[in-house]
Amino acid sequence: MSHGTIRYWAAAKAAAGRAEEAFAAGTLEDLLGQVRRRYEGNATFLKVLDRSSLLVNSTAVGRRPHDQVVLEPGWTVEVLPPFAGG
């Protein structure tokens, strides 16, 4: 288990009420489980989280299984909600 930071952007930041927070986790699945438990009473945030793209240390997670995405010490996870524009 390693320590790192999860950062929330746009609608995720608004729903969480903060830009970032620290966690200790070994995999992305573990981290997201902790985040969901912390915000279990915040349906708006959980909906945004489920629709967001994720970056781990600036690399898109894409469709990789979250239990296979290992978080190395000092990791940063970015939560990027869908956006529109052009």
Rank of each mutant, 00 (worst) to 15 (best):
F23M: 05
A43I: 04
D50F: 00
R7Y: 04
G17M: 12
A60P: 15
G85R: 11
R51D: 14
N42I: 04
F23E: 02
P65Y: 05
R7S: 07
E72P: 02
L55R: 15
D67P: 03
H3P: 00
P82D: 14
V61P: 12
E78R: 03
L71Q: 08
F83H: 09
G17Y: 08
G26E: 15
E40I: 01
V70N: 12
A11F: 05
G74I: 07
G62A: 08
S58P: 07
L46T: 01
P73D: 14
S52Q: 03
S53Y: 06
L49P: 01
F83G: 02
Q34R: 15
A22Q: 13
P82V: 09
Q34L: 10
Q34P: 03
R51M: 12
S58C: 13
G74C: 09
L54M: 05
G74Q: 09
W75G: 10
G62P: 10
G26R: 06
L71S: 06
G4F: 00
T59D: 14
P73I: 10
R63K: 15
V79Y: 07
T5A: 02
T59G: 09
A22C: 04
Y8E: 02
W75K: 11
T76I: 13
F45A: 09
Q68H: 09
K13H: 05
S58H: 10
G85A: 08
W9P: 09
L46F: 03
G41Y: 06
G62I: 07
A12H: 01
L80W: 11
G86L: 09
Q68L: 15
L80D: 07
F23H: 08
Y39M: 12
T76D: 09
V69L: 00
L49V: 01
